Computed example of a mutant assay.
Amino acid sequence: MVVKAELEKLGFKPLLVELGEVTLAKNITPEDKIRISFGLNHFGFELLEDKKTQIAEQVKTAIVNLVHYTREPLKINLSAYLSDQLKQEYAGLSGIFSEVENQTIEKYFIAQKIEKAKEMLTYGELTLSEIAYQLNYSSVAHLSAQFKKVTGITPSAYKAGSADSRKTLDEV
């Protein structure tokens, strides 16, 4: 909504604004791009013109939406999910993501799941077993091992007093 409002304020007519992509009613000039870039930067957005960077951002957005905004347990095949969401083969998405982000899609997915686990631990409404189930870990031991590998502490130690180590989604 912010992107659409800013574009309209700048005098452009966005036909479509979704998942890192904007379609405008008319072609824009290089000067228009500068104005748009400046206007979006004010709100913390950046204009991505490189196709590979756009794809990597779309992958990140799809993973964040899956992990943080889906209410159902994460019982899903990540490669099939991403291919379906972005209408591209997973192998291509994976290669581009690794090139742009210097990490694999799987590591990014795990990092997001650990951040979600931190959030759930902070709220204290679910047991570790329930959190493991929600995040599609095969066992509490698997979740605990991955949590410790990523954060350096166990989920129990985190819950006992390390709540200040959560990251914002764009820092993961």
Rank of each mutant, 00 (worst) to 15 (best):
D32E: 13
S98K: 12
L86A: 00
L66V: 05
L74F: 10
Q103G: 06
Y69W: 15
K33H: 11
F45Q: 02
L66W: 05
F38S: 15
I63M: 06
D84H: 15
F97S: 06
D84L: 14
H42S: 13
T29K: 02
K26C: 14
E31L: 06
L78V: 13
I105C: 01
L78G: 02
S37A: 14
E106P: 07
S37P: 08
P30E: 03
E57H: 12
D84M: 14
G92M: 12
D84P: 14
L48T: 04
V64E: 04
T70P: 09
I34A: 08
D50S: 11
V100K: 08
Y81M: 04
Q103H: 10
I36C: 00
I63A: 03
F45A: 06
E31V: 05
T70I: 11
E106I: 14
S79N: 08
L47C: 10
V59T: 02
L93V: 05
E99S: 10
S98N: 11
E49D: 10
E46P: 09
Y90R: 03
Q85W: 00
P73Q: 09
V100Q: 01
F43K: 15
A56V: 11
S94M: 08
A62N: 05
G44T: 08
T53F: 14
Q88G: 03
I36N: 04
T53S: 14
L74Q: 02
V67C: 03
I76F: 14
I34G: 03
L40W: 04
V67W: 02
D50C: 11
A62S: 07
R35Q: 07
V67I: 09
R71W: 14
P30C: 10
L86H: 01
I96Y: 05
G92L: 10
L78N: 09
K60P: 09
R71N: 14
E49I: 00
P30F: 10
A91I: 06
H42V: 15
I36A: 03
K33E: 07
I36Y: 05
V64A: 00
L48N: 07
I36E: 00
I55G: 05
P73A: 11
K87H: 15
E89Y: 06
N41L: 15
